[in-house]
Simulated assay, not measured.
Amino acid sequence: MARIAGVNIPTNKRVVIGLTYIFGIGSAKAEQICQQLSIPAERRVNELSDDDVLKIRELIDREFRVEGDLRRELAMNIKRLMDLGCYRGLRHRRGLPVRGQRTHTNARTRKGKAVAIAGKKKVTR
């Protein structure tokens, strides 16, 4: 099992697919890494030599921001918005959608499970 950027890469998958298990590396960056290191697209992770794994690890450390550093940067960006008190920061603080979505209905992912209001009666016609 190859361990790159603190993540165990699944051994039976292709290298391009396995690299996407690292937070911050998607399919496009994974293909770019394989092209730069001239690793064939059909090669599996368990077929990589220790030298290949070392080259991948060094390339990722040198050129990409991944895992902990990237998560920390994203958290700091959100914290900065909240400290500024701007609109986006207030939406983050209240746990509401940030990018202009409606909240009258939907937005359950951000708002959580719907809570019934006690004493509210349904309108009858």
Results as ranks from 00 to 15, higher is better:
Gln36Ser: 13
Arg125Met: 07
Ile4Cys: 01
His92Gln: 02
Gly112Trp: 04
Gly112Ile: 09
Asn12Met: 11
Ala75Glu: 14
Thr103Trp: 01
Leu48Asn: 03
Pro40Gly: 01
His104Val: 10
Asn8Gln: 07
Glu47His: 06
Ala107Asn: 09
Thr124Phe: 05
Gly100Met: 08
Tyr87Ser: 01
Val45Lys: 02
Gly6Tyr: 00
Tyr87Asp: 00
Lys29Glu: 05
Lys113Ala: 13
Arg71Asp: 05
Gly26Val: 02
Leu37Lys: 04
Ile33Phe: 09
Cys86Gly: 14
Ala2Met: 05
Asn77Cys: 08
Gln36Arg: 15
Ile39Gly: 11
Leu81Pro: 00
Ala114Cys: 06
Thr124Met: 13
His92Asn: 00
Thr105Lys: 08
Gln101Arg: 14
Thr109Gln: 14
Asn8Thr: 12
Ala2Gly: 02
Ser49Gly: 13
Gly119Leu: 01
Ile17Phe: 07
Lys122Pro: 11
Gly100Ser: 03
Val53Met: 06
Ile117Gly: 03
Ile33Val: 14
Arg62Lys: 15
Cys34Gln: 01
Ile78Lys: 03
Cys86Leu: 07
Gly6Leu: 00
Arg62Glu: 15
Gly112Lys: 07
Ile78Trp: 02
Ala114Arg: 12
Gly112Thr: 11
Ala5Ile: 14
Leu59Gly: 03
Gly24Cys: 00
Glu47Asp: 08
Glu31Thr: 05
Gly6Ser: 00
Gly89Leu: 09
Asn12Glu: 13
Lys122Phe: 10
Ala114Ile: 10
Ala28Met: 10
Glu63Cys: 03
Met76Asn: 15
Arg44Ser: 06
Thr20Cys: 09
Asn8Tyr: 07
Asn46Leu: 07
Ile22Val: 14
Asn8Ala: 10
Lys113His: 06
Ala116Glu: 13
Thr124Arg: 13
Glu42Pro: 00
Pro40Asp: 05
Ile56Phe: 09
Ser49Thr: 15
Ile56Arg: 08
Ala114Glu: 13
Glu67Pro: 04
Ala116Leu: 11
Glu58His: 15
Ile22Leu: 09
Lys113Leu: 14
Gly100Gln: 05
Asp51Ala: 08
Lys55Tyr: 04
Asn77Gly: 05
Ala28Lys: 15
Arg3Tyr: 04
Tyr87Gly: 00
Ala28Ser: 15
Asn77Met: 12
Arg99Phe: 05
Gln101Ile: 06
Ala5Trp: 13
Arg62Gln: 14
Arg88Ile: 04
Lys55Val: 03
Val53Asn: 08
Glu42Trp: 00
Gly18Phe: 09
Arg14Trp: 03
Val66Ile: 11
His104Tyr: 10
Ile25Ser: 08
Lys29Met: 04
Arg43Leu: 11
Leu81Ala: 12
Leu90Gln: 12
Ala5Glu: 15
Leu96Cys: 04
Val45Thr: 11
Ile4Val: 12
Pro10Asp: 07
Gly100His: 04
Leu74Tyr: 03
Arg72Phe: 07
Arg93Val: 01
Leu48Trp: 05
Gln36Cys: 12
Ile56Asp: 10
Arg88His: 10
Lys120Thr: 08
Arg94Trp: 12
Arg110Trp: 03
Val53Trp: 09
Arg43Pro: 04
Glu58Ala: 10
Ala107Cys: 08
Ile117Glu: 12
Glu63Leu: 01
